[in-house]
């Protein structure tokens, strides 16, 4: 095996993912090798159905590759049993989704607090940390709002705060601006970029929006499950 940069956070080694088998088999991701470093902001582009979400799920330990290996901090997570993966996700990865996925019954503060509870922080400490994260995302006036009373941009900022709960070094975002107008979309992307540059996290984001490409440190393109030669 080749020698690897100690600075590599996520490493994919000839990863493929095939859904189904036989005639109906879909080769969603094919032979992808990739090394991602901390403190950098990556944007993944590609047409619909090209395998972007699948790749994200492989990196986030939500899917096992059909072949190849996935390493997070040099730990081969693709070899871990199903029971060990929740811990890896709890400690290493934060997710952001296009559809926000907020519990309608929880206020902004409760959403973050519940996530912190899950990650082992309890009581007043969790509440204090939740306030801090929301304030960091300039949501200090929205602590006690339910998702239904928040704008799309605000909802996504709550989701970013949730992804940051537990301080994970990796943030995976799947089209986080897909349901936002361009102004709030750009704001979210700027927040994500700052999280990479100021806090040293690895941010990996899927996007269709060509207007924000300039904010990325590196742009990756995928087509038909294969990563294109990178610029």
């Amino acid at each position: 095996m080749a020698c690897h940069d100690a600075q590599t956070v996520v490493r994919l080694d000839r990863v493929s993912k095939t859904y189904g088998s036989g005639e109906s088999a879909v080769h969603a991701v094919q032979d992808v090798s990739l090394e991602l470093a901390p403190g950098r902001f990556y944007i993944l582009m590609g047409p619909s159905g090209s395998g972007k979400t699948t790749l994200l799920m492989l990196m986030g330990c939500l899917l096992k590759p059909t072949s190849g290996s996935v390493f997070l901090f040099n730990e081969e997570v693709s070899a871990l049993g199903e029971g060990k993966l929740p811990r890896v996700r709890r400690e290493k990865v934060g997710f952001i989704f296009q559809g926000f996925n907020l519990f309608p019954a929880l206020t902004a503060l409760e959403t973050i607090e519940a996530t912190l509870n899950l990650k082992g922080l309890r009581g007043e400490a969790a509440r204090e940390k939740a306030r801090e994260l929301l304030t960091h995302l300039r949501l200090e006036k929205r602590f006690h709002h339910l998702p239904e009373d928040l704008s799309g941009g605000e909802k996504q900022r709550v989701a970013v705060a949730r992804a940051l709960a537990g301080d994970p070094p990796i943030i995976l975002a799947d089209e986080p601006t897909g349901q936002l107008d361009s102004k709030s979309g750009r704001l979210i992307v700027e927040v994500l970029r700052d999280l990479a540059h100021n806090e040293g996290r690895l941010i990996f984001m899927v996007s269709h929006d060509t207007r924000i490409l300039g904010l990325a440190d590196r742009i990756l393109e995928i087509d038909d499950g294969r990563l294109k030669d990178q610029s």
Binding site: G60, L62, G83, P86, R87, V88, R89, R90, E91, V93, G94, F95, F97, G99, N101, L102, F103, P104, T115, L118, K119, R162, A163, G166
Partner: peptide
């Protein structure tokens, strides 16, 4: 109705037991 939110919780590291 809340399957997606439950799934999100799971993605963030909740075990089935949680």
């Amino acid at each position: 109705e809340h399957l997606k939110e439950f799934g999100t919780f799971k993605a963030m590291g909740a075990s089935n037991w949680n």
